[in-house]
Design a protein around this nucleic acid. Structure first.
Length: 584
RNA sequence: CGGGAUGUAGCGCAGCUUGGUAGCGCACCUCGCUUGGGACGAGGGGGUCGCACGUUCAAAUCGUGUCAUCCCGACCA
């Protein structure tokens, strides 16, 4: 309830709409695909400069500042301290961690006039670690958590969805330094508290989900997802219908349905399967369940071929596979590559007599008397068993894609799926950066030790977009009140009507005196225009001074619910204040 | 990077097939009128038709190249 603060730092003081720098569009911009992009452009919040790069107009900046301030308050409450690091980063630091090579094209590299290489910061692990290395010498100085709110630049392969995936975007990034694992655990928990509070205060329902750590590395990580309840959102989230388990699909686990190995084939033998290549065809051909088949897939991981085995009814989760074999890049092999590396026809390949790495999913362990390819065209082996006819793979890992409907790994519930927008993430980095960069401190025994680190991000601009994605109707945005650019718009229906205008002015001034952020729509426009704009922009409350004035009443309309109240002029301010206090 | 599409006024689009003085709606300016859900009338301003080269008496229109933007995919906080 930030409006209680005497000093509001939301921005400039122009609160008359004739002065406000904004412009609404009647038509939807052709290049805006998702709702948040469309409304933010139409309502005059953002304008595109170039692909993936946007100007935040005054309305947008107010929203951004509100989110930022909530973030600051909650981060500070957990003992974190704000600083601000440079956006241009020197090549040397990135070479220390090796990320200059592995980060890829997303890292926007540039050269200065002296020919020195650098990059626009997509994240700041290197910079903060270098700072800690120089400044933190003793365990007595620990723990420390430093954060900043700053523009990040990532040269996205394909920017899209407006503010949801831009190249330049506002992010809060925090980095914790601890003396030991227990300290990191403590810091991590504090950030969970901070994040939970932040998103709650922003009025966003989020779910903390387990996720893959990606290129940043580290062991444990969680993402905070806004569950959009719509088609939009880039991540698939699996969550339990009865406990609080939730995970990104690239990390989710489950109790899968048992295999249906009915023991049809008790003896192992080669069988002709002319042209029968797919699992589906095999199942039909033999009249068995897909789960009685061992599926073999070949991937090219960092240019080397790898065979992945999985139960026939299951699918590979490529991110899991990538992590399991420690590769940077992975893709399914082409037919030509299968022939080249296996000397086998696609559709008949299998884990026999090949000299490439073989990795098996957990799901193949229980396979008995199964059907499997043996690298012979138009033949399959039936009734196979591990370590009899087929050698059990040396490496087994969870590389399976979890499907909705499967059992929750932590309770008896079932998993459901929804789209989510990732607005925050937290990582336990451990010593990944501090070791490489020789960022150490002296512990109480005089031993030199690397910092135990964590990092914690929140996409500020993305959070704003996610809020629009989640809260809107056909007419426009329905901001949660805590992040709405203004709380109230006062609309005199006809600015040439003296009574309407003076009433509106008075209410407007009285609201301002109560520290309620109010704009006066003093434009000489027809009421329809003002109402449409008010809905589109998403002022939380609209007070209309119009025809009801003859009864001494004004109208109060609540944007989020559409609720309409008629109240005596003299009570309007108190009623609105009350409404906002209750956050509508 | 692969596949697809589009570049014409600030925004949304037509015109291109069949080459001949660049149009419509919204927005903008002036005047009038209007004032409870994106009014109406009259008048007005604004465009190197993405860029370059070529074909032609003549190119928004045809050809070649190039750049940009968007969509699908690979990738990703």
């Amino acid at each position: 309830m930030h409006f209680r603060n005497k000093i509001y730092s939301g921005g400039n003081l122009i609160m008359r709409m004739t002065k406000l720098f904004f412009n609404t569009l009647r038509e939807t911009p052709a290049d805006a695909e998702v709702i948040s992009h469309q409304f933010l452009v139409r309502a005059g919040y953002i304008r595109k400069l170039t692909s993936g790069i946007y100007t935040y107009l005054p309305l947008m900046l107010r929203v951004i500042k509100k989110i930022s301030n909530i973030i600051r308050e909650e981060m500070d409450a957990q003992g974190a301290q704000e600083l601000l690091m440079p956006i241009l980063q020197p090549e040397e630091l990135w070479k220390e961690t090796g990320r200059w090579e592995v980060y890829g094209k997303e890292l926007m590299r540039l050269t200065d006039r002296h020919g020195r290489m650098g990059a626009l910061g997509p994240t700041h692990e290197e910079i903060i670690t270098a700072l800690a290395r120089d400044e933190i010498k003793s365990y007595r100085q620990l723990p420390v958590n430093l954060y900043q709110i700053q523009d990040k630049f990532r040269d996205e392969i394909r920017p899209r969805f407006g503010l949801l995936r831009g190249r330049e975007f506002l992010m809060k990034d925090a980095y914790s330094f601890d003396a030991d694992e227990a300290g990191l655990e403590e810091s991590y928990k504090k950030m969970i508290i901070a994040y939970t509070n932040i998103f709650n205060r922003c009025g966003l329902e989020t779910r903390m989900v387990r996720s893959d750590s990606g290129a940043i590395g580290g062991s444990v990580s969680h993402e905070f997802m806004v569950l959009t309840r719509t088609q939009s959102g880039e991540n698939d989230v699996l969550f339990c219908d009865s406990c609080d388990y939730a995970a990104n699909s690239n990390r989710a686990e489950s109790r899968m349905l048992p295999a249906d190995t009915d023991g049809k084939f008790t003896d192992a033998k080669e069988v002709d399967t002319p042209g029968i290549k797919s699992i589906e065809d095999l199942a039909k051909f033999f009249n068995i369940a897909p789960s009685a088949i061992c599926k073999s897939l070949v991937y090219i991981a960092d240019k080397r071929p790898v065979m992945a085995l999985i139960r026939g009814d299951q699918a590979i989760e490529e991110t899991k596979l990538l992590n399991a074999i420690g590769a940077n890049e992975i893709r399914i092999a082409s037919d030509a590559e299968v022939r080249e590396h296996l000397n086998a026809e696609p559709g008949f390949m299998g884990p026999v007599g090949v000299n490439i790495q073989i990795i098996g999913d957990e799901s193949i362990k229980e396979l008995k008397n199964f059907v499997v390819g043996i690298n012979k065209a138009d033949k399959h082996l039936v009734g196979a068993n591990w370590d009899k006819e087929i050698k059990f793979p040396a490496k087994i890992a969870d590389i399976r894609l979890v499907q909705p409907g499967e059992g929750c790994p932590e309770c008896e519930g079932k998993l459901e799926t929804t789209k989510g927008i990732e607005v925050g993430n937290i990582f336990k980095l451990g010593t990944k950066y501090s070791e490489k960069m020789k960022a150490t401190f002296t512990d109480e025994n005089g031993q030199e030790k690397p910092f135990i680190m964590g990092c914690y991000g929140i996409g500020v601009s993305r959070t704003a977009a996610a809020a629009v994605e989640r809260y809107h109707d056909k007419d426009g945005i329905q901001w949660p009140i805590a992040i709405a650019p203004y709380h109230v718009v006062v609309v005199p229906v006809n600015v040439t009507d003296e009574q309407q205008m003076s009433t509106a002015e008075k209410i407007y001034n009285d609201l301002l005196a109560e520290n309620i952020e109010t704009v006066l729509d003093d434009r000489d426009e027809r009421p329809g225009v003002k109402f449409k704009d008010a809905d589109l922009i998403g002022f939380s409350v609209r007070i209309t001074a119009g025809k009801t004035l003859v009864e001494g009443m004004v109208e109060i309309k609540i944007r989020s619910t559409g609720e309409l109240l008629k109240v005596p002029v003299g009570e309007a301010v108190a009623r609105v204040k009350d409404l906002i206090l209750k956050e509508c």
